[in-house]
Amino acid sequence: MIWSDINTQAHGLVRKNPRLQDYIDSKIFAYEDFPSALTGHLADSLQEHLQRSLLKEWFDEIVNHHPEIATAAEADINRVVTLNPACPDHLTALLSFRGIAAIQAYRIAHAIWNSGDIQSAVLLQNWISLQWNIDIHPAAKLGQGLFIDHGIGLVIGETAVVEDEVSIWHGVTLGSTLNETGDRHPKIRRGALICASASVLGNIEVGENAIVAANSVVLKPVSNGVVVAGAPAKPVGQAPSSLATLSTQSEQV
Rank of each mutant, 00 (worst) to 15 (best):
T71D: 13
D149Q: 08
P18V: 10
A86F: 06
V14T: 02
S197T: 13
A214D: 06
I28Y: 06
E180K: 08
D117W: 10
A140D: 00
D149T: 10
H11D: 12
E205V: 09
Q9S: 12
E208D: 10
L142F: 08
H65E: 15
E61P: 01
G143Y: 01
S36I: 08
T71F: 14
T71L: 13
D149Y: 09
G182M: 13
R184M: 12
C195P: 00
D117K: 10
R19E: 15
L193I: 11
L50N: 04
A72P: 01
S247Q: 13
S216I: 08
M1Y: 02
R98V: 07
H65C: 13
D89L: 05
K234P: 09
P221W: 07
G40H: 06
A196D: 12
I118T: 10
S241I: 15
I24Y: 04
I108T: 09
N179G: 00
Q125G: 01
I6C: 06
D149E: 08
P35S: 08
D22I: 12
K141G: 01
D117L: 10
V217Q: 14
A72Y: 03
G237H: 12
N114K: 11
V253C: 15
V81H: 10
E61V: 03
T39H: 04
N17E: 05
A10K: 06
G153M: 01
N179Q: 11
P235R: 06
L50D: 09
I112G: 05
A233Q: 06
R98H: 12
G202I: 02
E74Y: 01
S120V: 12
R189I: 00
A192E: 11
D135Y: 05
N133P: 00
L154G: 11
G182F: 06
H185G: 05
P67F: 12
L219H: 04
N126W: 05
V161D: 05
N133R: 11
Q119M: 09
S247I: 14
A140N: 07
G182D: 13
T173R: 00
H66T: 11
L174T: 00
A72R: 00
S129D: 10
H137K: 07
E163W: 10
I118P: 00
H49E: 15
R190Q: 12
